[in-house]
């Protein structure tokens, strides 16, 4: 697989903003004048918008592992959603080649009214797997999530732990070429975490491109080959992990990291 036709992510001057429909424009404009927040603006049609991402550009090739750091609300999750093709840009372009999967929230799109088995089946159909591949995923998920007979019960009857196990097993059962991960994925109880860690590492290694957002800098240090520091929706710094993390640690409030 050559770099010219392998998986890639190409982000060019990406700009994403959210319209605020439910707030009063007048009072928000006053807020802006007071300088409380620098991220509210007016779009050309004079609607109040939150500038979630501004002028973000980078390019990833097969083998690249990008870590995203930044405070809450810096735009990490929005960037992941834009890379996944969920949020379409207000300006700039996002170009992604390769089978992509995004692990963005704990439920990752599961329907709680449906049974575990139905959710597995639907996910496989969405991923466009053949019936044979679907069966393999079915077995694998059942095996890993260890749900027993609960597999045929609606997901809403699951305990929190069971539903995390199912969501995790499901999203990690289908190996994507481009993997986007948000930080919730590192959470979980310690018994599960050990089992999950191995599976996650295997998946990360199998993916051609990884984009990972987390506050746990040690995970970024061990998994990522480059880091982007997002601040107020802009790229504050982009470079090798040691460099960026050193600068980030110097400025950011101390984050408790697992031993």
């Amino acid at each position: 697989m050559t770099a010219s036709n392998g998986p890639l992510i190409d982000v060019d001057r990406l700009h994403v903003s959210f319209p605020l429909y439910h707030g009063s424009a007048r009072s928000l404009r006053r807020t802006m004048a007071d300088g409380v927040s620098g991220r509210l603006g007016l779009d050309p049609r004079r609607r109040v918008v939150v500038e979630a991402l501004r002028d973000v550009s980078f390019r990833l090739r097969a083998g690249d592992r990008l870590g995203l750091v930044g405070g809450n609300g810096a735009g990490k999750t929005t960037l992941l959603r834009a890379l996944a093709g969920i949020y379409e840009p207000v300006d700039g372009t996002v170009h992604v080649r390769g089978r992509l999967d995004a692990l963005l929230d704990a439920n990752s799109g599961m329907s709680t009214g449906m049974t575990g088995r139905e959710n597995i089946n639907l996910r496989c159909l969405h991923a466009g797997l053949t019936p044979r591949q679907s069966r393999a995923v079915q077995d694998d998920v059942q095996d890993f999530a260890d749900l027993g007979s609960f597999i045929d019960m609606p997901v809403r009857t699951y305990s929190a732990g069971m539903s995390v196990r199912l969501g995790f097993a499901l999203t990690t059962a289908i190996n994507p070429q481009v993997l986007l991960m948000d930080e919730w994925f590192m959470a979980g109880d310690s018994a599960f975490l050990h089992k999950a860690q191995k599976r996650l590492e295997a998946m990360v290694q199998a993916a051609d491109i990884l984009v990972l957002s987390t506050h746990q800098l040690t995970i970024i240090e061990s998994w990522c080959s480059e880091v982007i520091w997002l601040d107020q929706g802009r790229i504050r710094m982009h470079g090798a992990p040691q460099e960026v993390l050193a600068a980030y640690r110097g400025e950011a409030p101390v984050v408790t990291e697992p031993a």
Binding site: E88, G92, T93, V94, R97, I174, N175, Q177
Partner: peptide, 18 residues
Amino acid sequence: APTLATEPLDEPVFVTAP
């Protein structure tokens, strides 16, 4: 983790732009 990627699959492409 199972290695489903061993079966050849085409690489979908998407471009999002305004």
